[in-house]
Each structure stands twice: as structure tokens, then as C-alpha cells.
Design a protein around this nucleic acid. Structure first.
Lengths: 142, 142
DNA sequence: TTTCTAGATTAGAAACATTCTAAAATATTG
DNA sequence: CAATATTTTAGAATGTTTCTAATCTAGAAA
């Protein structure tokens, strides 16, 4: 990515501060990578590699810390779909996912394209925190 | 569990053979643990611990191998819901899950209690392999 | 500016779940 | 029983994530 404008950096800085986080060099770089482009599904490893490629020295531990902090602050959504690694989703709007069984790739499905019309009442003493719909897809053979 | 009857063991043996697997001591013990009781969501570690508790010597590698073989044979369904470990579900009927965000516990939701009325067409060249609905629930606070 | 300190970052170790390896054990067939 | 194809196994290896405790830094105060 080209050097981001002063304005964008100021925006990100303010956003971090609003979430109670110090706008450090590392957090700013990660926030830019995550939010500058459109919606993304990214793993910690991928984000770390991306930062390295841009010559932003960040340790993998910091990438993990930051992803979790951003998630706690409501800037990201953590997806636990394919087993193994966790994906972090920058799309915070109500939506669901196509999950490619072969590759593990995720693709957004706009929230209004899926309608869950019937849902059971949650068990006593609990409330529904969210409903995730995963449409598993495979290569069509023949 | 009490020593299973001859009949149950014969049933399981036949089932394994039907799936093209030799009915070994290990596979019979795991099949009994999995299918004797009602529906279960179990991890490899849990199943291994259960076998140990019953003094059935089985290595963890064999538990993994067997769970995957059973899944391939259509005797189990593998669930990739909470990140980290994989759950294996003995309930093969069409159904969905409550997922306790706190504990990671899974509870079945009968298939007919959830209706997904609208679904987008899958991307070109793919077909829908399945739709999983996870209802995330948390302790109600207040 | 300098100083102070709570908060942030880090390398590397540790903790995990899971898979792999290749040797030994076992089930089946003839 | 002998031959052979499968299966099991301990332990090593892999991959992801978390932990640790030392070092660094942003922001506040002097």
C-alpha cells in the first residue's frame, strides 16, 4: 500500500484511542492493513506476513495480541469456522459465510440474503448472542 | 459402562465390517463408547480419556485415526465450531447447534426447529454441501 | 525537556491439538 | 499354521496460539 495520508493515520489514531488503546506504531500499521481495504478475512499468520512484506517490524505475538484487542473493542469479529486457525473478519455488518470445504476459504454472504425464519428459544438463563450460518460448498463434480 | 452384551458387540462388529474396517479390539471399544449412549459431542482427547478410564488401552493416535475413519464411513459428523479442537457428533440426523460461548459446550437443536428460508445461490462451479446454523448463547446477565 | 511509569512489544519457550513415521502387533485368508 | 495386508503404536514432528519475563515506549507530570 502507498504511504497512507496524514488524515487516515489521524483517523486510525483516534479510533484506537477511542477504544482505550495507545496508538503505537504496531497497532497503527495493523489497523491500516486491516481497515484500509474493504472487507477481509485474515489469519494472524497472514497479517504478520503482510506487515513483514511492508517492512513494518512486528512480532507474531503482537499480531495476536492486537487482533484480540481489536476484537474485544468491537473492531473485528473472530470467526471459528474451519478448524485449525482462526479468521478475523473486518466486516462487522450482519452477514454470513460461504465456506469452501476444499480450501478453507471464506466468502461473505450479505445478511439479507439469508433468512433464518425459525429459531428455538435459548435454554433457560441464556440469551442468543448471535446466529451464524455457514453454507458449506464444494467443487461441483460432473 | 457395564460389560456390553454379546449381541451389541456382534452388532458393532458387523457395522465395522460393513464399513470395510476390521473389527479390532480398539475400534470395537471406541464404537461402543460412541454409539451405546445417546447423541454425543466428543473430542479425541475426551474419548481417549474415557477409554483409559475403562482400562481399554488405546493410543491417542488410534483414537484420531478411528474418529476420522468413522467420519469417512458416515458413522460420525465432524464439527468445526469452536476454534481449537474438533468435535465429533454421533447424531447424524439433520440438526443444528447451540454453542455456549463461555464453556464451548454444544447442544443439539433438532433440524426442524430451525428454518433457513432464504439462501443465495452458490458460486459458479460449486454446489451446497450443507448449511450449518450455530446459535451462539451466553449467560444472561442481570 | 527530562523523568517517570503504566502499558506495550518482544524473542523465545511452552502449551495445545493434530498428524506423521516406521516398527511391531494383529486380523484375515489360504 | 503361514503368509500378507491392515492396524496399532510411541514418539517425533508440525502448526497454531499463548505465555513469560525482559525490554521498550507513549503519555503525563515536573
Amino acid at each position: 500500500m502507498a504511504t497512507p495520508s496524514e488524515k487516515i493515520i489521524r483517523d486510525v489514531t483516534a479510533r484506537l484511542r477511542a477504544a482505550g488503546m495507545r496508538p503505537t506504531r504496531q497497532r497503527i500499521a495493523l489497523a491500516l492493513a486491516l481497515f484500509a481495504k474493504g472487507d477481509r478475512h485474515i489469519t494472524a499468520e497472514q497479517l504478520h506476513a503482510e506487515a513483514q512484506a511492508q517492512h513494518v517490524g512486528i512480532s507474531l505475538a503482537t499480531v495476536y495480541n492486537t487482533l484480540h484487542q481489536f476484537t474485544r473493542a468491537g473492531l473485528l469479529r473472530e470467526l471459528a469456522i474451519g478448524s485449525g486457525r482462526s479468521y478475523f473478519d473486518t466486516n462487522l455488518s450482519h452477514h454470513h459465510h460461504f465456506f469452501y470445504e476444499g480450501s478453507g476459504q471464506l466468502v461473505d454472504v450479505a445478511g439479507d440474503l439469508v433468512k433464518v425464519s425459525t429459531v428455538p428459544a435459548p435454554p433457560k438463563g441464556t440469551r442468543v448472542a448471535g446466529i451464524d450460518v455457514v453454507i458449506r460448498i464444494t467443487e461441483r463434480n460432473r
